[in-house]
Nucleic acid binder design. Structure first.
Lengths: 200, 200, 200, 200
DNA sequence: AATGAATGAGGGTTCATTCAT
DNA sequence: TATGAATGAACCCTCATTCAT
């Protein structure tokens, strides 16, 4: 019926769809209440079918977490670098959008990180890596005299991650405010970093 | 049942000790992996004894969450108000300290909030209430011409919550940096809020 | 369906090959751990293909057991009867060789006999029938004055079955001793049966 | 109701009773068809109760197998040694009785030995150790001129194990013949070993 | 107040088997 | 004929919870 895909669709695609479904379920139910039965039902298949695509529940979760991380890693690749303010604008907005989109998973990942060192690392790749990258970006700007942050770049960088995370929480419940929130985040960032706003 | 005599006091104390133990266990194992057996073992009692103090595992968790929230609520009561900068300094540092101290529980609470509306509310009391209070504080300062935030006070306020949360994560792993981090948080906040630093 | 033409012959051959593979797998993994998946993998085919040749896993096992039994039944047909000692020699060695060759299957069959009356019967055909036949053989020899067993022929007969079984166990792990063991078995049998060794 | 024991009984005793029940079930159903549910039902308890005494189904089986082995090991301790024939008589009969009593378990152990090296060792302790002991016993007799086996002592010894095993199979179905079978086994053994029958 | 003992409910996982292609 | 895909039925095991002592 409403199974996860017709026969003609490749297995890889079905796996991907299963992950989509799984993300929704994990975000709705959290890690422990997400059962294979629930995943299967949400995907319109039977329990054993889930095992045709993933060896275990934990593997579903790991694959999901990996996918989220990969999306975050990809974010950093395409950013307009025509001016510091533009770079900041795009980077912050993109990070904010991704954070909002995957807010639930990030909460679950943080929870699992309490228990699983692998999740701790994965979370680090999502959160701390962009921070380090951003810190280096600021340091370069400072060296060029184009930024004058109030506190060390690393702290600005960390602060912005936190700000984005918190704003994302709000954006999840009030998507209509997402745009405005993005704007405020950028504004705050520019001010914290002491970057001249030369956008448009 | 038992009067407020020594017996009762002992019971209240034991309950409190049980909660201390429980907080440690919940932070180490997360919500689902925390079993009554583990709580009992960590407290050096048998499983049924836990039920003498709490009706269910969920009640242990709720009591714990309540305790954390209460501590956050109490934070706001004693703040030096001799100057805006001093107020900000104390409030931010206190919030940051509490956030660091209860970081694990806050992660678990966030996770449970995905599932349990009551936890959503509780989390709101911990995070959003101080934000609103802070926003009002800023608005008053703005009205008095003593603050000139870069973005609306509500956004500054939300931003600082996020910053603190992220800094707390770091402070958990590197307690030796807690002081410095607290200072940076205050500095950033003052700058974001456009408050003159008239401290010492 | 398919005539006895080449197709059918191919099918029969494949079935036989499948049984060969299955014997190896059942002996390696025992009855319960042998899965259709394992059989299919060992045969280099997909799971459903196994079902093209056998209606069920139990049928694979039954066919296998039947094949083993048939081999044992055939043993008794060609035995040199030129002298009692020669008869004994050939019969014991042949039985011992077959027992060694199919030791694993015989263990599995014994195990299944605990549960399945049909396997009990089959095992009886493999083990008890030769015993009865042997007992009659001895009785005839006794009547002719050519044997003087220490105990009733039926007991001698049963004893030799047991001896062979135990020797086979050893021969499985130490094939190089098979010949010597065969010799000892014959010697013991002759002595137990009180048959003059007029061989060679 | 008909649970495995009243509260007053020690846990050790209950464990022992559970093992008694388990032996019956394993012998009736074989290894794989024996489920925890069946064990629990046979013992008159619920499934989780079984886990209060054993960590897993495999542990139940191992404990059972250990118990059987221990009983076999104890057999060898008390044997009348007033004369070779008496020693042989007692040893063979005792081994035969134990083999009959635990026939089912020995079949299951043999089956598991296909898969589990630990079971292979355990089986060796049950079967091969008495053989080696017996072989040494015969060697001593030979040295003293009190035995003249038809084949090397080790082979006699192995043969008798096999004979006993096969006789036990029969005795399981026909307990009324056990005594007679025991006698025949002893007679055969004495003859094979070339021991003078000086028993009363 | 405290606990040893027991269990109902439920979740993860496996596997023989079927079916559409 | 052969198979990729899917599933019903079980089974092992865990855990929150209860109860008699």
């Amino acid at each position: 019926m409403s199974s996860i895909g017709s026969r003609s669709v490749g297995a890889e695609e079905k796996r991907e769809r299963l992950l989509d479904v799984a993300e929704a379920v994990f975000c709705r139910l959290g890690h422990s209440r997400t059962t294979i039965a629930e995943l299967a039902a949400a995907a319109g298949v039977s329990r054993p079918t889930v095992y045709a695509y993933f060896p275990s529940k934990e593997d579903v979760f790991r694959a999901l977490a990996d996918r989220v991380r990969d999306e975050f890693l990809r974010l950093q690749e395409r950013v307009d670098t025509s001016s510091p303010a533009r770079t900041a604008d795009e980077a912050v907005r993109a990070f904010f959008a991704a954070y909002t989109r995957h807010h639930g998973m990030l909460v679950v990942i943080a929870h699992q990180a309490l228990v699983d060192p692998a999740m701790r690392e994965l979370r680090d790749e999502i959160v701390a890596r962009p921070e380090r990258r951003n810190a280096r970006f600021l340091e370069r700007l400072v060296a060029d005299g184009r930024a004058a942050p109030a506190v060390p770049p690393a702290d600005v960088s960390r602060a912005v991650t936190g700000m984005v995370a918190r704003a994302a929480e709000l954006a999840v419940d009030h998507p209509e405010q997402a745009d405005r929130l993005g704007g405020e985040l950028v504004a705050l960032y520019l001010r914290m970093a002491g970057i001249d706003d030369d956008r448009g």
